[in-house]
Simulated scan of single mutants.
Amino acid sequence: MTAKKVEFRSLDFERQLDHPPEKVWRALTQKELLGEWMMPSDFTPEVGKSFTMTAQWGEVTGRVLFVEPERRLSYTWNGPGLSSEVTWTLTPRNGGTLLRLDHTKIPSDSKQAYHGAKAGWPGFLDALKKTLSDID
């Protein structure tokens, strides 16, 4: 018998934000702020730490893989029908921050999860922009 080769897909988004990297970093890593724009969670930006985020449609669990404050954050993203990774990259640009989101290692056969993430991330990113405007 031959083992089936698992193929993966990814989603990539970029947003130019009118806020400095340190402010964007706070919104990505402080659980109180994460709850405002993404989902309530017990997130802590420490490598190896596990976390849970809760939404109406279900739960996402993960583990922090990489932390470079105000530059890069990566964690696993495990939700209904999906086991993948999310990486945020912050680059200072034009007096603000170029924010890049890479959602990778999405199994090709997880079509519903892929399309859900493809539809969901733009809404989260819009909510992030609003949260950034509302905090000091």
Rank of each mutant, 00 (worst) to 15 (best):
V6S: 04
F43P: 07
E7C: 01
K111V: 15
K129E: 13
P122Y: 06
K111R: 14
R71A: 15
D42L: 01
A117N: 10
L90D: 08
R100E: 08
P107H: 03
S110M: 07
K49Q: 11
G48D: 06
L128D: 10
R9L: 01
Q56N: 07
D42M: 02
A119N: 10
D134R: 15
W121N: 04
G120Q: 05
L65E: 12
N78S: 13
A3L: 04
G48F: 02
T87I: 11
V6Y: 02
V60M: 05
A119I: 00
P40F: 05
S74L: 05
W77Y: 15
E32F: 07
W57Y: 14
K49C: 10
P45N: 03
H103T: 01
G81P: 12
E46L: 06
G79Q: 10
F43R: 08
E85S: 09
L28Y: 03
F66Q: 11
S10E: 15
L28H: 03
E14W: 01
P107T: 09
M39C: 14
W25I: 00
E14R: 05
L125T: 03
L125W: 01
N78K: 14
T131Q: 08
R71N: 12
G58W: 04
R15E: 13
G48C: 03
R72N: 00
P92Q: 09
L132S: 12
T61L: 03
G81N: 15
K49H: 09
R72M: 03
L128T: 10
Y75N: 08
G95R: 10
A117M: 14
V86T: 14
T2V: 07
Q56P: 07
V67Y: 07
N94D: 14
P107K: 01
A27W: 09
V6N: 06
I106D: 10
P122W: 05
I106R: 11
T87S: 14
V67E: 08
L132D: 02
Q16M: 08
R100I: 05
L33N: 01
G62A: 06
K23E: 03
R72C: 04
K31L: 09
T52L: 08
R63L: 10
R100M: 09
G95E: 06
N78W: 10
D102P: 00
P21S: 01
E46T: 09
S133Q: 15
G96V: 03
R93T: 09
E36H: 06
S108Q: 11
A3D: 05
E85R: 14
L99W: 02
L33Y: 10
P21Q: 02
T52R: 06
R9I: 02
E46D: 08
W121P: 09
M38S: 11
S133V: 02
D12R: 10
D109Q: 13
M1Y: 07
Q30L: 12
K129P: 00
E68S: 13
